[in-house]
Simulated assay, not measured.
Amino acid sequence: MAHSDILSQPDRGLGLDRPQTEALLALFSRCDDLREFGREVIQSVVNALMDSQAQEACGAPRGSRSPERVNSRNGYRERSLSTSLGDLELRVPKLREGTYFPEGILERYTRVEASMVALVREMYVAGVSTRKVGLVAEELGVSSLSSSEVSALCAGLDEEAEAFRTRPIEGEHPYVWLDATYMKCRTGGRYASVALVTAIGMSSSGHKEFLGCACFDSESEAAWSEFLGSLRDRGLRGVRLAVSDAHAGLVAAVSRVLPGCSWQRCLTHLQRDIRGHVHNLAGQALAADLVRACAGQADADVARAAW
């Protein structure tokens, strides 16, 4: 549709009047692509909304005399807001009395929109350096995201993770799966291998829940005892069976910290151990199938005979 057709039918589509349509077309003609056009439109709309809110706070239009006026305008504060469409240059109105902040339009003291914050945090958790995160943001059109700003955006991750890791454990969890893995972590300015221990529980309703995790220098009985004790202090109760590998320290910690709880060797770890004693692929697959068949018996006597 030509520009003249759009102007002659202003009520079609967006329902804009002629001046609004002309302004939109003029804005579109100045932009090189739809991304830039979207950024310009959002920037114009946000600035217009803030002007409207400031005018309502004053009680009268700008420059007019009215007995209903309760405040007056006093210029603007230039602010930059980083978004997925690029940097928005915003003009936040200032008032002579009090302070105006665009509640509902911008998050207080936030210069980056939520989607960009989520993207930056995801890259940070994945191990991308703050400098490279800034370069990625620049490719997305955000030119004002420095390494220090990336660090500030990710500063709250530790608090959120700690709150999740130490939250109260509610209800009973009759079954608990325990495991550990070694991974590289940055501690004291250097990378070192640490043991990350984890616990997953199944509630009485049959739903699995991630109960917690912790890092230790090594997977020892003392470390497992401390970790299981922290789970118990947070409310873990009703555990009837713990499933894990055959680590001696872990088995001893379960017996000491969770009295009355039985222990069972993890089927997957058992299969791995048995396959390690078989030296051909066909034999390894057969061994895994046999272990699975033995463990799948519903009758205890049959299961023992199968073993």
Rank of each mutant, 00 (worst) to 15 (best):
N74C: 10
N74V: 14
G75H: 12
G75P: 12
Y76T: 11
Y76V: 14
Y76F: 15
R77I: 08
R77H: 15
R77T: 15
R77N: 15
R77E: 14
R79S: 08
S80Y: 11
L81E: 10
L81V: 08
L81K: 00
L81Y: 14
S82P: 09
S82L: 06
T83R: 00
S84T: 12
S84R: 04
S84N: 08
L85E: 02
L85K: 00
L85R: 01
G86W: 09
G86F: 06
G86K: 02
G86V: 04
D87L: 07
E89Q: 14
E89Y: 05
V92N: 05
V92L: 11
V92E: 10
V92T: 14
P93D: 00
P93I: 03
P93T: 07
K94L: 15
L95E: 05
L95F: 12
R96S: 15
E97R: 13
E97N: 08
G98F: 09
T99H: 04
Y100Q: 03
Y100K: 02
Y100V: 07
F101I: 00
P102W: 02
P102A: 02
P102T: 06
E103T: 08
E103L: 10
E103M: 07
E103S: 15
E103Y: 12
G104N: 10
G104A: 07
I105R: 11
I105M: 11
I105P: 05
L106Y: 03
L106N: 05
R108C: 05
R108S: 15
R108Q: 14
Y109V: 01
Y109S: 06
T110S: 14
T110L: 07
T110P: 00
R111L: 00
R111P: 06
R111A: 12
R111Y: 06
R111W: 10
E113L: 01
E113P: 04
A114W: 06
A114E: 10
A114L: 12
S115H: 07
M116F: 01
M116Q: 05
A118S: 15
A118I: 01
A118N: 13
L119Y: 05
L119G: 01
L119I: 08
R121S: 10
R121Y: 02
R121M: 06
E122G: 10
E122D: 11
E122C: 02
E122W: 02
E122I: 00
E122F: 06
M123D: 06
M123W: 10
M123I: 05
Y124H: 09
Y124V: 02
V125Q: 00
V125M: 04
V125W: 00
V125S: 05
V125D: 03
